[in-house]
Design a protein around this nucleic acid. Sequence first.
RNA 1: GCUCCGAUAGUGUAGUCCGGCCAAUCAUAUUGCCCUCUCGAGGCAAUGACCAGGGUUCAAAUCCCUGUCGGAGCACCA
Length: 512
Amino acid sequence: MDQAEKRERLAELAPERVEELDADEEEDEHPLPDLPNAEEGGVRMRVAPNPNSPWHIGHARMAAVVGTYKERYDGEFVCRFDDTDPDTKRPDLDAYDAILKAIDYLGFEPDEVVRASDRVDIYYDHARELIDEMGAYTCSCPAEEFSDLKNAGEACPHREKAAGTVHEEFSAMVDGEYGAGEMVLRVRTDIEHKNPALRDWVAFRVVDTPHPREEAAAYRCWPMLDFQSGVDDHLMGVTHIIRGIDLQDSAKRQGFVYDYFGWEYPEVVHWGHVEVDEYDVPLSSSTIVERVAAGELDGWDDPRAPTVASLRRRGIRGEALVAAMVELGTSTSNVDLAMSSVYAHNRELIDDDTDRAFLVRDDPDHGGGAVERQVVGGPDAGEPPVHPDHEDRGTRSIPVDSGVLVESADLPERGQRVWLKGYGCVRHTRDALEYTGDDIEVVRDGNVPVVHWVPAEANVPVRMRTMDGDVWGYGEPGVAEYDRDEMLQFERVGFVRIDDPGEEVVAYFAHK
RNA sequence: GCUCCGAUAGUGUAGUCCGGCCAAUCAUAUUGCCCUCUCGAGGCAAUGACCAGGGUUCAAAUCCCUGUCGGAGCACCA
């Protein structure tokens, strides 16, 4: 049955439904779905990074989406460093700032910044309260033994200890009287719960390694994420939590603690993992850390690294990354971020304001290498516009002294013509480029290709850093005039950010 | 093994809750044409998807069942 027929039938069967359909108005368009039970002004969220490394691109999703929701609901967000594992996921002292910088780069400002490692005593207080409620017990079972019991749905002998004993043993954990692995504090949930992941999970354990932050270096008894983050979310008034599907069971686990305390659990949204195309380096903190340490990457902002710092250095605006992240939505499926989407957003943001310039690459894989030719006849200089869509910004003056450089792929066959952009038409004779005029009709009707060029002598050496490695070339003289952080479009090559304006200009390639 | 969750074009997404303006939205991508002194921008067009099979119904992307595929948890990691 086709559409018209369906509609006809519907009109016969239920005319009121047709009216309803017709009356359906369009809702406000938001790139992100509405948060459940969210009210304007009543939304408080948190970004809870582990500062064990700076951020890769995937981490930016959290801040991008939380920040966007904050703006949408006129709400707030807290940046809480969940740095409660001084050993396995040991914090990197530089990462705290790097992460805050990344959030700032994305265009957001946390309403509050806290470190879990400053709040350990608060967690202890809640642990003691939980023990009073008979909601937790100390357990000295070796991990494997407990795991076996748990999988069989059987309680261990420590489960029925008196609260007094549990208090004593927990205090001993806090006082550092146990070594790592000797004693833990478990939350009493339901040892026969059908989901084994929820049965009597560990809330506190002993870590022998001191925390790298001086302020927290004395603690040996550390909360696990589910306890710490569960308590903090409540204490900080978090109304909505966004987190990965790897933490799918956290809400259910923490639910037991919330029940003991009579708290109400925040709304939760789970999303899948992000992957990014176009990179050889995987989106994994540990891999990036390794490659940086091994010298395979020049640092976290190496253009080949899939990191926030790298995108920033390439001149990608945080806004472009946020837009692309927000478009991914909050689906529980894993998603692939197409870098082309980030580039498309960035191009739209910067194209209008970015000056044009020529870069002749001297690279066998890109343009075939620079070749020099004398120019015979013609004016002394070319005058291409600073921006083709904005005549009022004037022109660049590029001298043609002893000759020019072009990329060999652009050099026409002998006898053929080529249009040097902003200069005029030349014919390739035996060993030179002979000026044939400035009538643009040859380009419009004569199939003469338009190419970029630079003077053979008065040019500026440029090292362009790209995702595929460095490309050397020669820029037009004006390239030397740009300051660090300014953007430039090398015509027919792509957009770059000037990173170092020195003798040899270093530019980071952003995208075409 | 136990427990959760998911599946719409190359990619992402809208629609799914409350079946019917859905032979399916928008963006990106790719290709072609127009325009342009850039391979950028702009304009136009084309390409391309409801995981499979059953069921319910006048009507199924939408509801139900089965299957397939994929993901996650069952850590003294976060």
